[in-house]
Amino acid sequence: MDKDNDKNATAGRPRHPDIGWIARATSMVLLILGLAATLWYLRQLVFLTFAGILIAVVISHLAVKLRRHVPMPRLLSLGVVVGLIILAVTTLIMATGPQVVGQFDTLAQRLPDALKSLEDYLNSSRIGTYMLNRIEEPEQSGNWNALGLITGTFSTVMNVVANIFVVIAVALFLATNPDIYRKGAMLLVPDHMQPRTNRFLDTVSPGLFHWLIGQLVAMAVVAVLMALGLWWLGMPVYIALGVIAGLTNFIPYFGPFIGGIPAMVIAFSIEPTKAFWVALLIFLVQALEGNFITPNIQKQATSLPPALIIVTIVGFGLLFGLLGMMFATPILLVIVVAVHIFYIEGMLNKTAPPPQ
């Protein structure tokens, strides 16, 4: 009877969770938080590394396409591709460099006066004064001095040079010997997940290649259209303004409007009505780029829902600034492919077609 009572008492007691499971779960959470904190602290290096990966993907795919037409060793094809890229960039700089540099110099001289003109116009109304008062003055962030300006400029130039070096180094090393990095990464993946991981890498690489090539072509088209439109409107430094619009078009949807700000400011300093026509030109080019140019260029790239792209760009911009906005779309592409392969197919066992 006493034994039965002991069993009933034991059965009636609440079962406590396994201490070992709690320890493992806590360790996993701490590990994830530590990894997230590390990535946040090194976010600039992460974006620069991702930029190097994008360039390496482009170089590798172009080399593969070259070897399909002209049989040659892999390293030689990579060297030919890199050499052709350097030759194309050098030729473009030599052909248009002096004129473009001259226009950028003129733009740098005219922009402060144009901003002052815009500020005076805004100060003439209550709404404009309120808007200006909401903008922090540069002097509020600290005292300016010539030595600080010089050292700050030198530091900025050195940072740009260092960032470019990191991107090029990562791109060349990855493109030259990608197998060593892929095999090293696969060692960290459990055996049962390696087939899906290989499929993920094989899927995301051509997606990034087609997206980046298509984006570069769209940037060039936007730069030409903006330059021609500004020239037709009688705007000064139209080549420099077109180049800015093309470069900022790397950021989908928001880029043309960001790049159009200098053109709007210069146009407003000339005549307010000219600013209206420049704004209309920006909207027309954006509509043409978003509805005709990019959809036709990006046919082979992994398709992404426009609303998801916009939300991701805004979120990355709030979290990481301009670098986040620049790389939000290709990172989103990687995430979408990963979710499809590892979660939809791997965990939910659903056979949906891959994003395309």
Rank of each mutant, 00 (worst) to 15 (best):
T49W: 13
L225W: 02
P98T: 08
A223Y: 07
L76S: 01
T329S: 15
P256S: 01
F292I: 07
L216D: 01
D113R: 14
L228A: 14
N5A: 05
S60P: 03
H340M: 09
G246I: 00
P236K: 06
A171P: 06
N145P: 09
P305C: 00
G242H: 11
P355L: 06
L42I: 04
V170E: 09
I251D: 00
V64M: 01
A220M: 13
P17M: 05
G97A: 00
Q215D: 10
A23L: 13
A146G: 11
Y238N: 06
V189K: 12
N163Q: 15
K350T: 11
L35C: 06
R196Q: 12
V46M: 14
I341T: 11
I55G: 02
L323D: 13
A9I: 09
L31Q: 06
T38P: 04
W21V: 07
T302V: 10
G234Q: 10
G246K: 02
T10E: 07
E345N: 08
L212A: 10
I22E: 11
V64D: 05
K3M: 00
G79N: 00
A23K: 11
H210P: 00
A36W: 03
V167F: 08
A108G: 14
L333Q: 15
G79F: 05
A218P: 07
M158I: 07
I93D: 01
W40P: 00
L87Q: 05
E345H: 12
F173R: 08
A223F: 09
I270V: 09
L84N: 12
A37K: 05
M158F: 03
D113V: 08
P262W: 03
K116F: 06
L212E: 08
P305D: 12
G152N: 10
I258G: 02
M131D: 02
V101N: 14
G148W: 06
K350Y: 03
Q103H: 08
I293V: 04
I150K: 10
V336S: 03
I164E: 10
L319F: 11
T129E: 13
T106A: 09
I213K: 08
V82M: 13
V334G: 05
P354A: 15
L172V: 15
V221R: 06
V339A: 15
N159K: 15
I239H: 09
V221T: 07
A88G: 02
I164H: 07
A175D: 05
T90H: 11
I313Q: 07
V101W: 12
Q99T: 11
V160Q: 13
M264F: 01
L107G: 11
F254G: 05
P190C: 13
P305S: 10
V189T: 14
V224A: 15
P272W: 05
Q215I: 02
L212G: 04
Q99Y: 06
I310Q: 03
A175R: 07
G83T: 03
A279I: 02
A301Y: 05
M28D: 09
L33H: 09
I344V: 14
V58M: 02
I168C: 12
V161T: 12
E289P: 04
M219G: 08
T248P: 02
L115K: 15
A63N: 01
F292W: 05
G290S: 14
